[in-house]
């Protein structure tokens, strides 16, 4: 009996915390289903669920929601692809090849993780102006495409792949590229998946760089679009919340399906330093 009571108490505590943590999301979804007249009322529940709000967001004047969605996905996909590719190459060099000065160079890489992005932001912006890349997709993608964190994450994983494989490949006369492409990369799949989710999610939500880089609504990514929405037509809370829901829900879905990889990745990126 004592144990059962303890179990129940523990469950209640956890459920209270969990419920209060997700209450804002519940309010968000319920508000997104209200009519504009109901928005200011105390009751959370709409009289009727107005699902058409979601479709209406796409038809709003000056709110290019579908465009922002696509921009975000487009930019995040490119950045993710480039990040995963370049950092897996670098990680391969740092973990599976022996060369003089390797560890020193790696330390330098780690050090750049500590640099505040803010320091580089202003000169990067000036450079983008000089190159004529402001308000272009290339300007959004390129500076974000290289990551020390990703290199670090991949290296941690590749270090744990047995050495014997390299020797076997060597005996078979494989080149270093073949070793990378045909042996190490396929074995690093879990880390690749993790890094893909991380960098996709991170760039999907990234705010600072798109904020300074985009000038016209056609180039906005979702976060910048949401800012624009909030500042120009934020009074239409029901539509705003529908837009917020639509930008949050994909992340929740990704998380629910990918959480095993994510949890592993978070461990990989930190404790086993």
């Amino acid at each position: 009996m004592g144990k059962s009571a303890k179990l129940l108490a523990l469950n209640i505590v956890l459920a209270v915390i969990a419920t209060s943590l997700i209450l804002p999301f519940v309010w968000m979804i319920l508000t997104s289903l209200k009519t504009l007249d109901e928005v200011g009322l105390p009751s959370w529940l709409p009289a009727t669920f107005k699902w058409s709000n979601y479709a209406d967001v796409f038809r709003m004047k000056e709110i290019l929601f579908s465009r922002w969605y696509l921009n975000s996905v487009f930019v995040a996909s490119w950045v993710t692809f480039l990040q995963v590719f370049t950092s897996s190459l670098a990680a391969f060099s740092f973990s599976r090849l022996q060369w003089k000065g390797r560890d020193q160079v790696f330390l330098l890489y780690l050090a750049t993780m500590m640099l505040p992005g803010l320091v580089m932001m202003i000169p990067n912006y000036r450079n983008m102006i000089a190159l004529g890349l402001v308000d272009t997709y290339a300007g959004l993608i390129l500076p974000a495409a290289f990551t020390a964190f990703g290199t670090f994450l991949m290296r941690q994983f590749m270090m744990n792949i047995p050495r014997a494989l390299d020797e076997a490949a060597n005996i078979d006369g494989a080149s270093k590229w073949q070793l990378y492409w045909e042996v190490i990369l396929p074995l690093s799949r879990p880390a690749l998946v993790t890094l893909t989710i991380f960098s996709f999610m991170g760039n999907y939500q990234n705010m600072f760089w798109p904020l300074v880089m985009t000038k016209t609504p056609h180039r906005y990514t979702l976060p910048i679009g949401m800012l624009f929405f909030d500042s120009t037509q934020g009074q239409q809370t029901n539509y705003l919340m529908a837009a917020v829901s639509m930008s949050v829900i994909p992340m929740i879905i990704v998380f629910v399906f990918m959480q095993k990889q994510l949890v592993k990745g978070i461990m990989l990126g930190s404790v086993k330093g």
Binding site: P24, F25, M28, Q205, M207, L222, P223, M226, V244, V248
Partner: peptide, 9 residues
């Protein structure tokens, strides 16, 4: 989900 969207929320 913390980001611009949840801050607006």
């Amino acid at each position: 989900t913390a980001g611009v969207a949840t801050f607006i929320l």
